[in-house]
Amino acid sequence: MSDSAPSGESKTRMPHFDIKIMGPAIALVLLCILGYVLNPAFVSEGNITNLLTRSSFIGIIAVGATFVITAGGIDLSVGSMAAVIAGIMIIVMNSAVGTFGTGVTTVLIGAGCSVILGLGAGWINGFLTTKGKIEAFIVTLGTMGIYRSLVTYFADGGTLSLDFAIRGTYRPIYYDSFAGLPVPVWMFILVSAVGWILLNRTAFGRYCMAIGSNEAVAKYSAINVDRIKTMTYVIQGLCVSLATIIYVPRLGSASSSTGVLWELEAIAAVIIGGTVLKGGYGRVGGTILGALILTTIGNILNFTDLISNYLNGTMQGLIIIIAVWLQRGEWGRSKRIKKAE
């Protein structure tokens, strides 16, 4: 089939509706309309704020996952990583209360500890995949199991609780607002903005896309493939640690069930947002929408009796499958072919 001749109809010239870019935004708008129709309280200020805050955890982690996936990797360990970081943070802060009191210092020590752990855990994933030459799926499946069991071990099978004396100092990080928006939302916005610039406006982001597209080409184009790939896991680790910092004050505890299935929600948010799972093409903006879509579904189910809240997972699963199916562009293409006939 010589495709050179009929390409005269120039598919790019036509302002062809691109489902890959507009799809997630449209889906979110439709969901919001649906939510409003089912229950006008959906658009109340309280609910919107709540929805945005809930989205922040998965959203921040998913921004990190966007880098990993764009560069052709995958990180399954983020949920367990968040749990173990939360656990260690709580242990460290509880023991710091004796020396440093219940002030900001202790919280900063906890946060610093979280960041160091996140960077370290990300680096380990990156090092094992690049220098260890083990597939990312296997490495992070392994670390996922390790972190999950570690948090269970630290909590001795139960729950690690943050010292009540420190909770008062730490609480505002989750519950307070700044200029009308809760702190976690500001964190989400900040991470998203930095992530967007990093992916779209720096050489690093370009290199991530190049590596995800074709590692051999990247190598021949003077890109330090191992370093860039490791960096994506380190960024992922940092995002997990930031998410954990805002998550801990919410419940003030960590257990073996903390962060369960977050990895899947994060990956789902990335994929719904239009990033290609095989790598080479990433969209931070899409990821943000993806995280909002996932949270909105759960929120709507909470608000109505139409479908049981227990079917939240079903709805999310359906959305993911539909999103990827639309991305394939299969139906777009078959339609175009039909039109040509």
Binding site: M209, A210, S213, N214, A216, V217, K219, G280, Y281
Partner: peptide, 11 residues
């Protein structure tokens, strides 16, 4: 090897 090592074909 322009297709495998030279160019990112999907970019």
């Amino acid at each position: 090897d322009r297709k495998e090592k030279g160019l990112l074909l999907k970019q």
